[in-house]
Computed example of a mutant assay.
Amino acid sequence: MGEFSAQWLALREPVDHAARSARVRDVLLADLRKRHGEQLSGLSILDLGCGSGSNLRAIAPHLGGQQRWCLVDYDDALLDAARLALKAWAHVVVSETTDSLQIMYGDRDIEITFRSADLSGDLQTVLAWPADLVSASALFDLVSRQWVDRFCDALRTPLYAVLSFDGQMQWEPEHPFDQTVRQAFCMHQATDKGFGAALGPSSGRYLCDALKQRAFEVTIDKSPWQIEDLPSAFHDMLIDGIAHAVLETGSLGEADMDTWLAYHRRASLCLIGHDDLYASVP
C-alpha cells in the first residue's frame, strides 16, 4: 500500500478514480469557473508527487480545451511511467521532447512538462512555479506537520488534494486480527517517509485545519476505496503491502500474519478510507 511502483499505481488507478468525491470535484470546478470563466480553458496545473500521472487522467476530462500541466516527482522512473501511460491514454500524441509531451484527449489539448524535484527540500522553489491550481494525490499522509505548515504558508493558489488515508480499514467477513492490523498499519503510516514523522491517518484533518487557519475556504469529504470484485491483483498487492508494514512494527508475528492474509484473500468486501479536499484561496 505504501509501495510506489508503476505496477501498484496502475492497479490502484481505477479504484482511485472510482473513490474520488464527486462533491469535492464539483466544488473545485465551480470555484475555477468563477475565477477563470465557464470554459475553463488555458489553466495551468501543478501536480505534486505525480506518480504515473493518474491525477491528470482523472481531472483533465473535466477541464477546458487548452490545459498546461507540470508533473512533479522525485522518481525519474515514475516520470517515465507517467509519460508512457499518458501516451497510451491520449487519443493523439501531437509532439514530444525529452521533458515535455503534447497530447489530445478528445478536444482537450494538453501540454505536459515533466519535472524532477525533491519536495522535502525544494518545496518553496516548486510552489513558486506558475500555476492556477496545485493538485496532489495520496501525498499528504506521507508528509510531516512541519512540511504541511511550510506548504500552507507558501501556497498561493487553490489546492486539490485527494486520497489521503484516514485510518479506516475493514473487510467482510471480519477476522479477529483486523483491529490489531489496522492499528499497526496506522502506526507504520506515521513513521518517516522522507519528510519527517508522517501525519498518516491524521493528514486530512491536519491539512484542513492548517488551511483554514490561513483563511482558505476548505471543502473536505470522504473518498473510500470500496473493493468488491475480489479476489483481484489489486487486492492481493494491497493486503501484501499492509502485511509487510505490520510485520515491520512487530505487532503480529509471521504465522499470525500469514493466517490473516490467507483469510482475507477470500474477502467479499474491502474498504480503505481516504479524505479528498479542495481549498479555495482567500
Rank of each mutant, 00 (worst) to 15 (best):
G2Y: 15
S5K: 02
A6P: 10
A6N: 15
W8P: 15
W8Q: 13
R12A: 12
V15S: 00
R20N: 06
S21M: 01
A22Y: 05
A22L: 05
R23F: 02
R23N: 05
R23Q: 04
R25H: 02
D26R: 08
L32M: 08
R33H: 14
R33G: 15
H36I: 01
H36R: 14
H36T: 09
Q39T: 05
L40G: 09
L43G: 02
S44L: 00
I45Q: 06
C50I: 08
C50R: 02
S52P: 00
G53K: 06
N55D: 12
L56R: 00
R57I: 13
A58G: 10
L63V: 02
G65L: 10
R68G: 08
W69Y: 08
C70W: 01
V72D: 05
V72Y: 03
V72A: 03
Y74D: 10
D75G: 06
D75E: 15
D76C: 08
D76K: 09
L79M: 14
A81W: 05
A81S: 15
A81F: 07
R83M: 08
A85C: 06
A90Q: 07
V92M: 07
V93R: 07
V94H: 14
T97P: 04
G106F: 14
E111Q: 12
T113E: 10
F114L: 09
S116W: 12
S116A: 05
L119P: 05
L119A: 04
S120V: 11
S120F: 02
G121N: 07
W129D: 09
A131T: 03
V134K: 07
A136R: 04
A138C: 10
F140T: 10
L142M: 09
V143R: 02
D149V: 14
D149G: 12
R150K: 13
R150L: 11
C152Y: 11
D153V: 07
L163N: 09
D166K: 10
G167M: 09
M169R: 04
P173S: 06
P176R: 07
F177P: 09
F177Y: 01
D178L: 15
Q179C: 10
V181L: 04
V181R: 01
Q183S: 13
A184Q: 03
C186I: 06
M187P: 12
H188I: 00
A190F: 03
A190C: 14
D192R: 07
K193E: 06
F195W: 09
G196W: 01
L199R: 00
G200K: 00
S202V: 12
S203Y: 04
C208V: 12
C208L: 07
A210T: 05
Q213G: 11
A215N: 10
T219D: 03
P224A: 10
S232R: 00
H235W: 08
L238H: 04
D240Q: 11
G241Y: 02
H244D: 05
L247F: 07
T249N: 11
T249C: 09
L252T: 07
L252D: 03
D256F: 04
L261K: 11
L261V: 14
Y263I: 03
Y263V: 00
H264N: 04
R265I: 07
R266P: 03
S268Y: 01
L269S: 15
I272H: 06
G273C: 09
G273A: 09
Y278E: 02
Y278L: 14
A279V: 05
A279G: 15
S280K: 11
P282V: 05
